[in-house]
């Protein structure tokens, strides 16, 4: 057993503080996801509500915004914000800031579509009944519409969190030292003593990402079943 672990390069994980470093790298990526998700939730909900109002100017803007963000790979957006903004307007974002900007822009687009969809799926009778009961617009939203909206958007929102976590793995491409980069460093440092470290380290990272996303996916699926 011990030979197999060493042979497959899993042994490097127990050298020094490698486990901690690897987990620290994962945490860096998760932190960026967390910030981006929080911004997306707030901005996306707001935009989604605005989109459901059927105002022409908002519709044109939101359609354009959604189309542009959704057709571009996040990697391209990352390059545009990180390299392009510096060149075009002299805006020098740190890689972390650039990532949060890009993932928030993307998350906001996805979130707003979820919110819009759920708002439009709520029957008009709900608004009319509330009005007939003498509720103000604010009260209608707070007590009738928003509680239903939250229930309908919850599975999609939680799904968005796993998508965000998976997408943040891209940040290594603009130089953030996250889990993949730490993995590469560990492999490089142990090239001589553990030539097979690449297998052990990348298999571990594979598993770490799975362990980070899978429970959230299960929760999303559970809520979806409950909502139906």
């Amino acid at each position: 057993m011990g030979d197999v672990i060493t042979g497959l390069g899993f042994d490097v994980l127990w050298k020094g503080s490698n486990w901690l470093r690897l987990l620290g790298g994962l945490l860096t990526a998760l932190e960026i996801s967390l910030f981006s998700v929080l911004i997306s939730l707030a901005a996306g909900s707001l935009l989604g509500v605005l989109m459901s109002l059927n105002k022409k100017a908002i519709d044109i803007f939101s359609k354009l915004y959604l189309e542009i963000i959704r057709i571009m790979p996040q990697m391209v957006l990352l390059f545009i914000v990180y390299f392009g903004a510096a060149r075009a307007w002299g805006l020098n974002f740190s890689p972390e800031t650039a990532s949060v900007i890009v993932f928030s822009l993307w998350g906001t687009a996805e979130m707003s579509d979820l919110v819009r969809g759920s708002l439009q799926s709520i029957p008009k009778a709900q608004y009319e009944s509330s009005a007939a009961l003498g509720m103000s617009t604010a009260k209608t939203y707070i007590y009738v519409i928003i509680p239903q909206m939250i229930r309908r958007t919850l599975p999609g929102t939680i799904n968005l969190i796993t998508r965000m976590i998976k997408t943040t793995s891209l940040v290594m491409m603009i130089g953030i030292v996250e889990v993949l980069k730490v993995g590469q460093q560990i492999i490089e440092a142990n090239r001589k003593s553990s030539p097979n470290a690449a297998f052990g380290v990348f298999a571990t990272i594979f598993l770490l990402y799975f362990l980070a996303c899978w429970p959230i996916s299960c929760l999303s699926r559970y809520l979806e079943k409950k909502a139906v």
């Binding site: 997408t167 297998f199 298999a203 594979f206 799975f210 996303c213 899978w214």
Partner: peptide, 22 residues
């Protein structure tokens, strides 16, 4: 479950850099 819950980048690193060791 495994492939839906991991990023492509990580999958590619595992296949391209990890598997040659086997």
């Amino acid at each position: 479950e495994l492939f839906r819950n991991t990023p492509l980048l990580v999958q590619l690193f595992f296949i391209y850099f990890g598997l040659p060791k086997l």
